[in-house]
Design a binder for these strands. Structure first.
Length: 431
RNA sequence: CGGGGAGUAGCGCAGCCUGGUAGCGCACCUGGUUUGGGACCAGGGGGUCGAAGGUUCGAAUCCUUUCUCCCCGACCA
């Protein structure tokens, strides 16, 4: 992608509305534009990041055996009346009346809809277990949206729902998702801390929330150090679930079961939540199957959410410096940028064009060919967090060199033009 | 919803107290000079001051109403 052809309005000034760093950086880097309180347009750069995160979440869901579908954003009130949540849910639910006076709503979650879909087709225990998910926009009319996309009213969420014959089976499904969540967050380069949680309005008996560590996180976590050392090759959910972890208001030092030197205190951002809630919705919405004795029994369900749009903000909170965002390679909107400092210089242009032509078919490349000052180019590329940057200037090109910069560490080295492609390929492929 | 704050050019702000129809920085446009970390000089375009009503000869400025946005709290992916 040629930068001159892209749409990435970077800003020097931060709009006063943005309080926290991720929100500021998202606005300054041209990722999002606020439309109204808690509602955002995703500009091209932000959309790329959002999609990259979405795809990793999707991939891990698929690997864990979940099956993707897509349910609508707008739901009929009927199902919610049936489940009893139409009144329960309160003002957070955006209620709308259509032209013929029917009550509809913008879905804040999908237990009702998915249960209805399930019960329409599945009648036998032989079809279990099932695990269905979708990645869809939700709307919750928060009393106070804040922190940019970290707590918007409209947000993108991956939510899935498991259906099992028995509680024991449901716990297996639950743990499978638990593992998938750990894998997902690790793959995003985050350190997930799993905590036993309250089940809240979803209801149920078993629940974990997943917080990722970030200095600027909203919640204070008290947890066993061991939670940070996850064996990525063999994720032992039982072990992870056995470690102590609590948010500050549930933590009581006098009753804390672990040694002080084993206890760690850190800030976290909640990015995922999983629930097992038994037959709460299946009974109300008629999701019954016949078991092997021919009896109709309600299915045991669980639901599992990951805030994808929140993760964008959360990841920035977890990874930035004073120059801007530092994206991990797999999330970065572009993997590498080719920065031509002297667009009017023939040699520089030749070198830059050549890199671009050779690499653009292989990776997502940003070719900074803009007619603007050197400082702006360099600082923009840092701001938007491109992991690798090839900086091409007159001075180096004369010596057959270019600068290769790693955003993560801000280290840069001079490399020969001839070797550059190989070095880049090595970095991007074997990373 | 309770408490606090803010709406003046695309963004950040000053002007408001002590009414006399708007100004600065960044961004933008033109010309020139520059060119390895948000360049410099000169020239230029753009706002009727969130909205409505009122007071006044005259309102960004005073009064009333209203809308929006932000921050702190309870809640959440």
């Amino acid at each position: 992608m040629k930068f001159s052809n892209f749409f990435s309005p970077t800003l020097k000034n931060v709009p006063a509305e943005a309080e926290i760093i991720s929100h500021q950086l998202m606005i300054r880097s041209g990722m999002i534009k606020q439309s109204s309180a808690g509602i955002y347009s995703w500009l091209p750069l932000g959309l790329r990041v959002l999609k990259n995160i979405e795809n990793i979440v999707r991939d891990e869901q698929n690997k864990a055996g979940a099956v993707e579908l897509l349910m609508p954003t707008i739901q009929s009130a009927d199902l919610w009346i049936k489940s009893g949540r139409y009144n329960e849910y309160g003002k957070e639910m955006l209620r709308i009346t259509d032209r013929s006076g029917r009550e509809i709503l913008y879905g804040p979650t999908n237990e009702e809809l998915i249960t209805d879909i399930f019960q329409s087709y599945i009648n036998s225990y032989k079809d279990l277990p099932k695990n269905l998910y979708h990645i869809q926009w939700k709307f919750r009319d928060e009393v106070r949206p804040r922190f940019g996309v970290m707590r918007g009213r409209e947000f993108l969420m991956k939510d899935n729902y498991s259906f099992d014959l028995s509680e024991q089976d449901a716990i297996i499904s639950y743990n499978k998702m638990f593992e998938a969540y750990i894998k997902t967050f690790l793959r995003l380069g985050l350190i997930p801390i799993s905590l036993r949680a309250e089940t809240g309005p979803i209801g149920g008996s078993l629940s974990h929330e997943f917080q990722i560590l970030a200095k600027t996180g909203e919640s204070t976590l008290y947890y066993d150090k061991a939670l940070e050392q996850i064996d990525t090759t063999n994720i032992d959910t039982k072990k992870l679930q056995s470690y102590y972890a609590a948010v500050d208001d549930l933590h009581d030092q006098s009753k804390c079961p672990i040694e002080k030197n084993q206890l760690k205190i850190a800030k976290g951002i909640e990015v995922g939540h999983i629930f097992y809630f038994g037959t709460k919705y299946s009974e109300k919405l008629g999701a019954f199957v016949q078991n092997n004795r021919g009896e109709n029994v309600p299915v045991h369900m669980g639901s599992y959410g990951i805030g994808i749009s929140r993760l964008v903000g959360a990841m920035i909170e977890a990874s930035h410096d004073d120059k801007g965002i530092i994206w991990p390679l797999n999330i970065a909107p572009f993997k590498i940028s080719i920065i031509n400092l002297m667009i009017d210089d023939e040699n520089c242009k030749k070198v830059a064009d050549n890199f671009y032509n050779q690499l653009s078919s292989k990776f997502e490349i940003l070719y900074d060919d803009r007619d603007c000052s050197i400082g702006k180019k360099l600082s923009d590329n840092d701001l938007i967090g491109i992991p690798y940057q090839i900086i091409i200037g007159k001075r180096d090109v004369k010596d057959n060199l270019v600068e290769f910069k790693i955003r993560q560490t801000n280290e840069s080295t001079k490399i020969s033009i001839d070797e550059a492609i190989n070095i880049v390929l090595k970095k991007l492929i074997y990373k």
